[in-house]
Simulated scan of single mutants.
Amino acid sequence: MKKLSILILFTLSTLALHAQESFINEVNYPYLDKLIATAKRNYPEVKVRIAQINAAKAALTQSKVAWLDAITASYIYSPKNSLNLTNPTFFNGYQIGFSVNLGTLLAKPFATRSAKEAVNIAQYQQQQYYLTIEATVKRLYFTYLEAQADLRNRARAVTDGEIAVKQLKYTFQKGETTFHDYNEALTSLYNQNSFKVQSELSILTAKANLEEFLGVKLEEVK
């Protein structure tokens, strides 16, 4: 009877390895929003997108005032007491003249329109990347929570395995359990500890991946 109860405990410990703990209730959506906002504020690629928008806006402003390039101003100074027999003039003093390059002037509206579209493209690209950032942060956050849940699962399996080994060792020493059963329990406990170490590594990896997008330590996001 005692051996049966130990085997049942050992079986439950093994099943705990396969029973994935749900982490749905641990999802903190306000905290997730803070993570997304932090990534949008700190991730270098986001700053690149903002710089591209600013550059496109500067080019648009430059295009709007560039129509002056089509107009050329000049002046001529004719002293009042001078006599120019080669190019006689009827006016004395300063004379101002303007010339217009029609080709350049007619091209300016198209250049301005192109600059406006460049601003729109830069803004659309930023909006698209914001969506990418949100999806990536959500995925990495969920992966991090999953790793935490898996570690708790593994830790319980190790605890149950230690209890089973302890009881099997006691019954083995009394001759109530075979060495084969005791050895299998030890092997299972060794495997459970290995799985636990792998889960710990998964948590560290998931945390590092998330912090790469945040630009700060996860603990700094309050």
Rank of each mutant, 00 (worst) to 15 (best):
M1T: 15
I6G: 06
I8G: 14
I8T: 14
I8N: 15
F10Y: 15
T11F: 11
T11L: 13
L17R: 15
A19E: 14
A19C: 10
E21D: 13
I24Q: 13
L32P: 02
I36F: 01
A39H: 04
R41W: 15
R41E: 13
R41H: 11
N54D: 15
K57R: 04
Q62H: 07
S63F: 04
A70S: 04
A73M: 08
I76D: 14
P79M: 05
N81V: 12
N87D: 10
N92C: 04
Y94M: 05
G97S: 10
S99P: 03
V100A: 03
G103I: 09
L105T: 00
L106T: 00
P109D: 09
R113W: 13
K116P: 03
A118M: 00
A122P: 02
Q125W: 01
Q127Y: 15
Y129P: 04
I133Y: 07
E134C: 06
E134V: 05
E134D: 15
E134T: 10
A135H: 03
T143K: 11
Y144M: 01
L145I: 01
A155S: 12
G161S: 07
I163W: 06
L168Q: 08
Y170D: 15
T171G: 06
Q173F: 03
K174T: 01
E176W: 00
E176P: 08
T178I: 07
F179I: 02
E184W: 08
E184L: 06
E184K: 08
T187N: 12
Q198D: 00
L201N: 02
S202D: 12
S202L: 04
I203W: 07
L204V: 12
N209Y: 12
L214M: 06
V216H: 02
K217H: 14
K222C: 11
